[in-house]
Design a protein around this nucleic acid. Sequence first.
RNA 1: GCCGCUGUGGCGAAAUGGCAGACGCAGCAGACUUAAAAUCUGCUGGGGCGUAAUUGCCCCGUGUGGGUUCGAGUCCCACCAGCGGCACCA
Length: 943
Amino acid sequence: MPRYNPAVIEPKWQTYWESNKTFRCPDMPVGEKVYVLDMFPYPSGEGLHVGHPEGYTATDIVSRYSRMRGKTVLHPMGYDSFGLPAEEYAIRTNTPPRVSTEKNIANFTRQLKMLGFSYDWDRCLATTDVAYFKWTQWIFLELFDTWFDPVRQKGRPIAELPIPEDVQAAGENAVAAYRDRHRLAYQDEALVNWCPALGTVLANEEVIDGKSERGGHPVQRIPLRQWMLRITAYGDRLLSDLDSLDWSPSIKKLQADWIGRSTGAEVDFPICSPDAFQAWKTSRATKPFPEVQPEDSIRVYTTRPDTLHGATYMVIAPEHPLVKKIVTPAQQAAVTAYCEAAAFKSDRDRTDGDKKKTGVFSGAYAINPVTGAPIPIWIADYVLIGYGTGAIMAVPAHDDRDFEFATAYSLPVVCVVSPDASGEELQQILEGKACYTGPGKAMNSGPLDGLGTEDAKAKMIAILSEEGIAKGAVNYKLRDWLFSRQRFWGEPFPILHELDANGNPTGRMRPVDRDNLPVDLPQLEDFKPHGRPEPPLAKAADDWLYVTIDGKRYRRETNTMPQWAGSCWYYLRFIDPKNSTALVDRAKEKAWMPVDLYVGGAEHAVLHLLYARFWHKVLYDRGHVSQPEPFQKLVNQGMILGEVEFTGYQKSDSSWVSTSSLEKGDNGLVDRVSKEPVEAVKVDESAVTKVGDCFVLLSDESIRVDSRAHKMSKSRGNVINPDSVVSEYGADSLRLYEMFMGPLEATKPWSTKGVNGVRNFLDRVWRLMIDTQSDTNQLVDAIQDVPPTAEQNRVIHSTIMNVTRDIESLGVNTPIARMMEFVNFFTKESVRPKCAMETLVLLLAPYAPHIAEELWEALGHSKTLAYEPWPTFDEAMTKASEVEVPLQINGKVRAKVVVPADATGEQLEAAARGHERIHELLDGKQIVKAIVVPGRMVNFVVK
RNA sequence: GCCGCUGUGGCGAAAUGGCAGACGCAGCAGACUUAAAAUCUGCUGGGGCGUAAUUGCCCCGUGUGGGUUCGAGUCCCACCAGCGGCACCA
């Protein structure tokens, strides 16, 4: 009987690996170590998606390959299990989040084991494990206990923070407040996206068009006291250390853009009458540039200090504290209305570049500190409170946004940079009728005149620094990380707020003693959010909520940490998952870190990877880890799309409209001619054909249809479930197919026929060795214990060489093609040397481990092949004794000649000249040059 | 708008600057079979010439247009299309 039957052999080997602890990883590496890490999944109720096994198979191949190369491999798996979806689900089904989370984890674990990944399951963890988040809280306390020393560019213990004398003098509370202001984890009044329906603040990227991404509920911007992490302090290091990483340029660039470092200057503009300007200037010249913006001026950040003479007005954000102070009575009503409207827009909404710029005049004027001219102060939401100082100097001649605004409100435009242009264009710019943002020569700019843009910037900063009016400054788009959420299903903050005798907060806080960690979540009957920004944990019983220490009463912090917290350090815990005295043992950490290969989706290119790098650097500064960066090599797997679909478009009378005659109407697509709306209709593959570059209907070739693979989604109904693929084709086929689809990093469409194709290959591998007529796994007669022939050896050795080389460079698809060629070749051989079969099985093992183990056993081995030495090759054996070499004339192949593989250039050229047809073609021509590449080609250049 | 990635047969894709399309899917043909399935074997970019038929020969072909080179899918410049990300960051 025995046909290849994955349904039997796959569970058999999974059980074998599990009961023999085949993939248990020792505490400390023996010899060379490799740490191969997957981005751990969020255990959703839907279970594994086919996208998950793609990256997981790639890392499993590397892990299994590395073991066979004798390395010690750390290859763990866990779950990122805190978060909003679990909680929403819990609310809907009225079950505690922990219950549904554990159920989902069990399902994920079943599915992952079903795919035969070689994880060390003893190291499995979930961020929701109390024993795990104890250390998440511990790290939070470390952040709380750290300040950033800008001189040393390093996080240091808060106890080492120098306290200025005046603060010291102001007493204990002032010192405590000073410390609190400098911690990496600090509380601050922040403008947040508050969603009353979800009962939580949301990150900017969770808000779309002023509505929550989840549920589409309205979102408001309100000020709330929130926990923040001072990631901006690490901006420079997060940026510059990217250079040391083996990451794709595109991911590095995404991170660099997100950090968004820019250099320029901060400049103060006095708010006073022109008469008082000289006095202001004189008083400024006596002192250095003030640390904090004085009341009598507006501080702006600019990257173009060279254009200061062209600043004809100023704009401050609607939330800017000065708005209330400077607005004139006549403008009061208009300003209030404008600011209120702005409050209802999210950051994203407001920064939508397509929108027309709006603004309102405050009635007040400031003085341009270099020209002495009064300039109006406007309020507009194109200026963001969160970036720079929340105020700008507007130079409409040299900034597109300012120009657009100036045009809309008829504000003056003064050109101060002579552009690199000519004719009409130059004239327009000089007259202030067009905007020029590029570099040029300074003009109308007093002492800067004639200088190039870079020199002018430097000179302006130098002059104004001298006068105490400005200083050079660096800014980041990166904001401090808003770290608290008003939800139940997250890590509680290990922070206590001191209460006075009346039960009111004193404003002082203390960390929970580290011995008292973890702070577990309270049991709550009702963990639902409500419409107020008061976290659900506030509903906990008093014995959880209130703590008395040394006679003082405290109330626990009731916010929880965001989902990102747990994933910031899980890779460290995998090294030492059971440690109860430290987050990770120092010696083990040193032995295993950094992660040598980290694979996951590109959706984490910015947030997760930036947050984790930030935490890691803090832990590094505080001496808990030995390396400045956690992830040495990062690879982003591409997305797997659904099967290719053909879509035609029909009018209401069912007549077809070609995609070439569609246009965008007000409500979707319409026929360009009749403007009638059309409906998208799925067309079967058999009903279309390709003509030229387009697919058209077979029934009417004038009707073009769309051909596209779409992202898998429930609503589209094109989701492929790994469970059903495994039950129909087997786990090895799924693994093999996902690798065979194409390069790991590419986006590629699913094809069920393709799965069938690789299954077919595994069937052929099986029949190559197993006699399907027999009742047991009897080897076919062709397999004999004989040495391979020269030709067989060439196939064996070149297959080993190519497979090895490609796995090393993470080329996952091409080794499969090589193995297919191997099988195609040996299928035709009536004598199949046993050693050749063993080689194939070992090469196949990282890809399709179950069938490989089964065949290894059939070949007479009694234990797992997981630690068998990887086959080696002799490059000399890969070469044929004779090669066919193309002969070209002027770069065109005209003939081929067979020569010994080791033929020299002279021999090859002689053979080429001697070739009958080449001789013929060269007759009467003058050979200008002969290019001979031994073993590859000959090219005669003739006239 | 800005940035990045990708453009190769009917489809997924290969190809250290050296014979474009390996390998797989789909398709076609043959063998086996009463038949089908399965399996095995072969063919399969387009056009043309030639021949009884083969062997064979020529031209075109890697999004478009240029360039570098003896030789370009590969390197350089410009453009076009698709996908993805960012998007008033002063």
